[in-house]
Design a protein around this nucleic acid. Structure first.
Lengths: 197, 197, 197, 197
DNA sequence: GATGAATGAGCGTTCATTCAT
DNA sequence: AATGAATGAACGCTCATTCAT
């Protein structure tokens, strides 16, 4: 694909991210998306088979960026607690600093696409070596530093508060400064850590 | 309003809850809703100004039921921890046992309506005596049995995991038996309780 | 269905017949059809699931009218030749006097619908008592007054010239007065009659 | 025009014939046509002003091939009947053996183009020495071996059955073996021949 | 000359809402 | 009060045609 084409595709994905985040999938007409991306409607369909495929492609892109952000600066020599706090702090900052990405992901995971994608990722993690860094920590330390609980429950305890709080932050209901972020990260650790520790 | 009218309105709300939960706001046409409620399309507009107002009214109804379910069997003589566990367990069972209500609320809170509603409730709680039982516990015990954190952060730590897990349960990704429910409730408490305790 | 509804449905079918005949299925937008029928676009979809179903319904209506016209004044006591000439003359006059119907049918039989419909009618004729009057004559007299030929071949010899000529007539290439009509009908009989007779 | 250009043009016409025959004019996008012809979309517009002109050009090509096939092996010393049977048998075999050409011509003659083309050919035949071989026979023998009828009527009687039958053959409704072909040709002759003969 | 990415008018269809009955 | 037929703006998507490369 030519550089110009790649630019165009990126412009479409960028416009899609903004519009989907601000208005939702349904309320964002392809025509408006085209306008915002400075392309013709028809051009979108050169790059993406239909609206669904555009959404999927955008998800892949956003998820990729998220995964990269999460593992930035990861250090396997640290304690489990410190590794967890590092990862989850990365996650919080990324979502807080990328409200469009956060809103898009929230929508995506609540749509019919989302459920299947989630299940798919879960199976993938079980089946392949490619593992989310969180899952690795959970599996390695479950029953030790971390409570012996089903993976999904650990996920819920670790991520649930984050998503909840970011949502409120973006809604302007609460301010997330560095102190609050540290407190929440801490709270998440408290929720999953084995009490004996 | 005549008893017959009340019945009709209830039928509409019931049908709306089912359809919205199963298909989403957008994918649930008013015509289908009317069919399912055994009323004419026009009748819906007698009780609700438009689709948005129907959604709002349904929210009020569902939220009312939820608030009632949460405080069932509450006992102010118990310890803070026990009161919290009681409330949150009520919450979990209600949401788990009422998937339509849960799915509707999730959608609602992720829609443009949701943000405003949340802010409104917050202000209401501050301004009036009518207070959510959770807020009462948080305000009463913050800095004592419970961490000294902004209310929104406590909310996030307490409710975030619940919502996350119920979602996965309804998607069939995890089974929530009584043991798991107790473990999650416990985890939520661990997240907010003061470590000294 | 209320009388008003029936009127509306008829208006739609009438407009469809005219537009399809004059512009073809593809070139006749639903919006134009709605305008011509003095209804809203959406109303068409109350009566017909989609454009295809409208076309099918129109075919049924036109075919019905055609079948009725063909058998008008049929007299089983006449000779095979006279019965045939009567039927085919009816056919000619109907098509000549109903150019919209003729053009619509031509299009229909040349579309993907048409082939299947034709085969279906053929099977129906074989399987049930309901028989086209032409088929009855052909089957009864094949090998006697009429040549012993496959049914399809008799059809071709009898109808082929008619369709060909009507087409040219509507195109203004030839004038079909009563004399010409009689001559063509005669020619068709000559094509299928047994020479010995 | 360079040899390479001629090749390209032929490839486009070949692809057009196949696609138009199989899918119809409307359902055959220029892009698909370009792909099948192994040229760029833009190239089609170098050889043909627009889609209509491509259709026209294809018609000329197909018609040319048809006219040549019809007169193959013509022998002016034979009887009128034998000459007619020879020509019409040529016609039948060509159409039967070239289904793409037949389907294309049928579509063409049923489209807005067709009418005008037909009228144009008629005028041409009258105005110039270039005459269809059938027209020559009809004009020479009308009132003698052949009925005294308007040219268009003779056309209808002679060609109508052929087109009708080929259509059904391609639709799989009837098998045209050599016997059937001879019988149809015979029938066509019976339709136009003077009874006295 | 040849290409195919880009375009946007125009399509079939849906659905929230209205209003005559 | 209750109905549902009627409406048309708005949607996702296609494709003949253009034009920069």
């Amino acid at each position: 694909m030519s550089p110009a084409s790649i630019e165009k595709q990126k412009a479409i994905l960028k416009a899609a991210l903004e519009l989907f985040a601000e208005q939702g999938f349904h309320a964002a007409p392809m025509a408006q998306l085209a306008t915002q991306a400075h392309v013709g409607v028809g051009s979108i369909y050169r790059y993406f088979k239909d609206k669904n495929e555009l959404i999927e492609a955008l998800y892949e892109e956003v998820d990729e960026a998220l995964q990269i952000a999460i593992i930035a600066g990861a250090d396997p020599t640290l304690s489990t607690r410190q590794q967890f706090l590092h990862l989850i702090t990365n996650l919080i900052y990324f979502l807080k600093d990328h409200p469009h990405e956060f809103k898009f992901l929230e929508q995506y995971y609540h749509s019919p696409f989302g459920i299947d994608k989630k299940r798919e990722k879960l199976l993938l993690d079980n089946a392949t070596g490619r593992q989310s860094p969180f899952i690795k920590i959970f599996l390695d330390s479950s029953g030790k530093e971390i409570k012996f609980l089903p993976l999904q429950v650990l996920h819920a305890l670790a991520f649930g508060p984050i998503l909840f709080l970011i949502r409120d932050t973006l809604a302007g209901l609460v301010e997330m400064d560095d102190t609050v972020i540290a407190q929440v990260a801490d709270g998440c650790w408290d929720a999953i850590k084995n009490r004996a520790d």
